[in-house]
Design a protein around this nucleic acid. Structure first.
Length: 523
RNA sequence: GAGGCUGUAGCUCAGUCGGUAGAGCAUCGGACUUUUAAUCCGUUGGUCCUGGGUUCGAGUCCCAGCAGCCUCACCA
C-alpha cells in the first residue's frame, strides 16, 4: 500500500530514523504547525478566512425554515427503514457540529440542536464543488444549516442526505473531548455554556428546572394566587435567621441589606387585602457554601388568608405532584442514599413523636431532652430548652427522614413568626417537609397577633445571638399587623432544592446555572 | 473555619525508586463514497497550579500559598 513517505516532502524512505526528519516543516502546514491553544485557534481562523475568501460571512445570518431535529426524527421514524433509502421529504436543519467523520469525498456529521441530534451525510458529488469548499472549512463546534432528503444510511442510521449547506457561525475554540465531554467540575460551572453543549443530561436538568417552576406557578395561579414582587433591597433583613449581604445606596446615603426571605412583605400584602399572594424570587444569605447551600438561591413563598398550616400541606402536595409530573420524575427513586416515594398523601409525623422515637427521650421533659442532647455532645448550659431540643432534633432525627414527610408541631420558642396552638401555647403550628434528611419546605399558621409578635421580636432566646435569630424587630411590620392581618397559612419552598430532589441531583450547583465561585487568577 | 483528596498538552487521563515529559481525542499532512468516539499511516503540541526548600538532579520529597471536590462546622 502507499506509504506516507511517498508524499512526504522530507527525504523518502531513508531508513526511518525518527530523530532526523522533523526538522523541516511541511510546506502545507504554516508556522511549523504547533498545537498549543493559540495555534489550535489559528487553524480555525485560517478556515474562517477561507470562508471569507469564498464570499461567505463566517458569522452567518438569519436562516429561516429550519425544522427542529426532534421533529425531523419523528418524521424519519415513519419512513421506509431499508438501508440507503434516501427518498424521504426534503428537510432543513440547523445546529452545532458535534462529530465529524470524513471518508474521503464522503463526510458524516452529527448535528445537534435544542431538540436532538441527527446524522448528516455529505457526498462530494452530491453537494457539488462549491458547497464542498465549505465542507473543507468545517470544524467541530461550528454552527451550520443543511438542506437534504431524509432517509437512512447503509447501516440504518437516520440521515439527512445533504444537497445544500449554509455556514452559520464559526467556533474559534477547541471543544472538549468529544467522548468524555467536559468533566472537570470547576470548568463545568465556570463555562456552563460548554457543559450545556457537552454534558450528559445537563441541558435536560435545566429544562426540567424550567418545567418545575412553570408547574409551581400553574398550581398557585390556578388557585387564585397573585404573583407579586417585593423589595430585594431592605433596611433590615427579616423573616429568617441568616446574615444578610450589606450594601449602600449612594444618593440616599443609607445602608441597605439584600433580603434573606420574602415573608414580611408578603404578609403586609395580606393586610392590604391581597388574600392569596406568592413570590418566586431570589434571596441572599451571607453564609457558608456547600452542596446544599448557595449564597443566592430561589425561594417561593405563598400566603393564603383564612387558611392554616394544614391548608399549606395540601398546597405543598399539589405543588410537588404537579412539579414531579412536569419534570418527568418517577414516583419512586433513589436520592442522596434514600429511597423516596412520591405517592400522596405524604406522611405526617409530630416533631416530639419523632424525637422520642429516634432518641428515646421524653420530649415533654426538658431534663430528659437535655440529657439526650448532652449525650450527643450538644452544649446545654445557659440555653433555652427549645433551642436545645431543636439542636437535638437536627443532630439525630433529620438524617433519618427519607420522606417525603411533614414534620409538624414545632417547639414554639424557635418559631417567632408562627401562631401557637390554641390549646397548647408551647407548640407552634408549623411544619417542615423533609426528603432524604433535607428540608425542602417550611410552613406556618401565620402569627397575626401584633402584641405577641412585638413581644417575640423583643425577646431574645437564651443561647442565641442576635444575628442567629429570626426575631428581628420590624416596627413597620408590627404596625401593619395592628391594622389586622387575616388568619392565614404561609408556605416557603426552596426551589433549588425542589429541583435537586425532582431531578435526583446531588449538589445545588447542578441546578443553578451559574453558582458562586472564587475568581481564578488566570483570565 | 478544620480535615481528607485533587491540580500534568485545548479536552480526558497515565507518569514506577527522585534521573531528559507520556497516551487517547483534538490540530496539521496523507489514504478512503456508508461512517457511528470511524479506521489506518504520519505530524505537532508542556509555566507538570504558584513560590520557596532539600538534592549533583524534583512532575515525584518537604514547607507555604492559590483553586476545586468531599466530609465536618456554620447556615435554626
Amino acid at each position: 500500500m502507499s506509504q506516507p513517505t511517498e508524499h512526504s516532502p522530507v527525504a523518502p524512505s531513508a531508513a526511518h530514523h525518527d530523530g532526523t526528519a522533523p526538522a523541516a516543516p511541511a510546506p502545507g502546514s504554516p508556522a511549523g504547525g504547533s498545537t498549543t491553544k493559540s495555534t489550535l485557534e489559528k487553524a480555525r481562523r485560517d478556515k474562517l478566512e477561507k470562508l471569507r475568501g469564498l464570499g461567505l460571512d463566517p458569522w452567518g445570518k438569519r436562516y429561516d425554515g429550519a425544522t427542529p431535529i426532534g421533529q425531523v426524527r419523528e418524521v424519519g421514524e415513519t419512513l421506509d427503514k431499508s438501508p440507503e433509502f434516501s427518498g424521504g421529504p426534503t428537510v432543513r436543519v440547523a445546529g452545532r457540529i458535534m462529530l465529524l467523520r470524513s471518508a474521503g469525498s464522503l463526510v458524516f456529521i452529527d448535528l445537534v440542536d435544542r431538540t436532538g441530534r441527527i446524522q448528516i451525510m455529505l457526498g462530494k458529488k452530491q453537494v457539488g464543488p462549491d458547497a464542498w469548499k465549505i465542507i473543507d472549512c468545517l470544524d467541530l463546534g461550528d454552527l451550520v444549516g443543511f438542506d437534504g432528503r431524509l432517509g437512512h444510511s447503509k447501516t440504518g442510521e437516520m440521515t439527512v442526505f445533504a444537497s445544500g449547506v449554509e455556514f452559520l457561525t464559526k467556533s474559534l475554540e477547541t471543544p472538549p473531548d468529544k467522548f468524555h465531554g467536559l468533566v472537570d467540575a470547576d470548568l463545568r460551572q465556570r463555562m456552563r455554556y460548554l457543559d450545556l453543549i457537552h454534558g450528559e443530561g445537563v441541558r435536560d436538568r435545566f429544562v426540567a428546572r424550567c418545567r418545575i417552576v412553570e408547574a409551581v406557578r400553574r398550581v398557585l395561579t390556578s388557585r387564585g394566587y397573585l404573583e407579586v414582587e417585593g423589595p430585594t433591597l431592605q433596611e433590615s433583613a427579616g423573616g429568617a435567621a441568616a446574615r444578610p449581604f450589606k450594601t449602600h445606596h449612594n444618593a440616599l446615603d443609607m445602608p441597605l441589606v439584600l433580603r434573606i426571605a420574602l415573608e414580611l412583605h408578603l404578609k403586609r400584602l395580606l393586610v392590604g387585602g391581597m388574600e392569596r399572594v406568592f413570590e418566586l424570587g431570589r434571596v441572599y444569605r451571607n453564609e457558608g457554601v456547600s452542596p446544599r447551600h448557595n449564597p443566592e438561591f430561589t425561594m417561593m413563598e405563598a400566603y393564603e388568608a383564612y387558611g392554616d398550616y394544614f391548608t399549606m400541606m395540601d398546597l405543598t402536595e399539589a405543588i410537588f405532584l404537579e412539579a414531579a409530573q412536569a419534570a418527568g420524575t418517577p414516583t419512586r427513586f433513589e436520592w442522596m442514599g434514600h429511597t423516596v416515594d412520591l405517592t400522596p398523601p405524604f406522611r405526617r409525623a409530630k416533631y416530639d413523636d419523632l424525637l422520642a422515637e429516634v432518641t428515646g427521650c421524653n420530649p415533654a421533659d426538658p431534663a430528659s431532652v437535655a440529657a439526650a442532647a448532652a449525650a450527643q455532645g450538644i452544649e446545654t448550659a445557659g440555653r433555652h430548652a427549645d433551642v436545645i431540643k431543636s439542636d437535638l432534633f437536627e443532630a439525630t432525627v433529620e438524617k433519618t427522614l427519607s420522606g417525603p414527610v411533614f414534620v409538624i408541631d414545632y417547639p414554639a420558642a424557635i418559631c417567632p413568626l408562627t401562631k401557637r396552638k390554641a390549646d397548647a401555647p408551647h407548640v407552634a403550628e408549623r411544619f417542615e417537609l423533609y426528603v432524604a434528611g433535607i428540608e425542602l419546605a417550611n410552613a406556618y399558621t401565620e402569627l397575626n397577633d401584633p402584641d405577641l409578635q412585638e413581644e417575640l421580636f423583643r425577646t431574645q432566646l437564651a443561647g442565641l445571638a442576635q444575628e442567629e435569630s429570626m426575631a428581628r424587630m420590624d416596627t413597620d411590620f408590627i404596625r401593619a399587623l395592628r391594622h389586622g392581618m387575616p388568619p392565614a397559612g404561609g408556605l416557603g419552598i426552596g426551589i433549588d432544592r425542589l429541583v435537586m430532589f425532582l431531578t435526583a441531583a446531588p449538589s445545588i450547583r447542578d441546578v443553578i446555572l451559574f453558582p458562586i465561585h472564587r475568581p481564578h487568577a488566570e483570565s
